[in-house]
Design a protein around this nucleic acid. Structure first.
Lengths: 195, 195
DNA sequence: TGTACATCAGTGAACGCGCGTTCACTGATGTAC
DNA sequence: TGTACATCAGTGAACGCGCGTTCACTGATGTAC
């Protein structure tokens, strides 16, 4: 049953992308290798032809999740220049639809678990965080790059915190209120950020 | 080896409090019943004299964690009236010491895992969140109670988000910068909140 | 109040189960000539 | 280019291990008279 090099590479990418979604859905500890391989349409025995361990997959899949998140944010921003792009990204990120989906944001779906992973995984997460902050900082026009970066870190932290809380609160009214208030507060901060 | 009613009740509380710390340290999925009983100085066999299941303990221990967090926040606020109390609570919560400790805040240490727990657990978390927000809202003087509550929800979300991110970033400089920027931004928001 | 028995907190070992990982096997792909 | 053999992606079953949970047992506490 040997497969061609192309197909092998495609299978590998498919496993990584499937794992990214499954880990975000069920958590790292809560998602088994067999679950992932099953979701990818394969059997678990073949897993170790592609990866040394579950940990190796965790690390690679985090990269995939970060790419997915960045793509989502960039999509929200396309066609809007400067601060309007940031406002659109905030509105999409802090939307009820995002809350009720399998979040593309690993900081939300895996945040507390990531803090317990080894530094290779956490470094991958940090790289993703930096890129996110840069994406936002770039559009915070009218302030110095340093000030924009600092402001972007706060905006990203607030987005992650509000979505984390909104997702664990079962009371829909409160959860939706949290999202709305965070959007409102961030919108003010984006508009007012020291010129 | 039967123990007196008093001692039994004390043992039970001890297990709950120990579990609260252990779950926050190692996560819910990552901490076993035997780990907790061992940390409490007992053997795992006795666990089911006190609790129906690990899940039942998770729920009770979350209450203990929430009490610990509230006590921490109240301690930061004591002796400071109005907004000064909120500023002190923010500074203590977003401190490097808090980041480097076993956080008393279950939203930070268990955030993404809590979103996957059953509604009994999530209701307990929500009750704790409401009490936290009220604690802060009460000290946001000069605005309507509704506006204070809304502002408090954003403040709490930002605190949780910044600490979640700061704890998973291995780069100390970036991690500390995130905390500092969040403190600065929240301080401005607390001082400026519409009068 | 004192005595005899029932209760049950805690121990230590065992249970079944699911996990990450390994392995023998299959057969299509890659490679050497 | 064609052929013969080596490689290895994927399967399905098995492995050891740690988990949540159960259980027989012990002996101090609680209770009934």
């Amino acid at each position: 049953m040997r497969k061609s090099k192309d197909e092998t590479a495609r299978t590998r990418r498919h496993i990584v992308d499937t794992a990214a979604v499954e880990f975000r859905r069920g958590g790292i500890a809560g998602t088994g290798v067999a679950d992932i391989m099953g979701a990818a349409g394969l059997t678990q025995g073949g897993f170790y032809r592609h990866f040394d361990s579950k940990d190796a997959l965790v690390q690679e899949s985090l990269g995939s999740s970060m790419d997915a998140l960045r793509a989502t944010i960039e999509e929200s921003m396309t066609g809007r220049s400067g601060r309007a792009g940031v406002l659109a990204a905030i509105d999409d990120y802090l939307s009820v639809e995002h809350r009720d989906s399998t979040s593309p944001c690993p900081f939300v779906s895996l945040g507390s678990e990531l803090a317990r992973e080894d530094s290779a995984v956490r470094d991958a997460a940090t790289a993703g965080l930096r890129r996110l902050a840069e994406l936002i900082a770039r559009q915070l026009t009218g302030v110095s790059p340093g000030a924009a970066k600092n402001k972007a870190l706060v905006i990203v932290s607030t987005m992650i915190g509000a979505m984390t809380v909104a997702r664990l609160v079962p009371d829909r009214a409160l959860s939706t209120l949290i999202l709305a208030q965070a959007r409102k507060s961030l919108a003010e901060q984006v508009r007012q950020a020291a010129p």
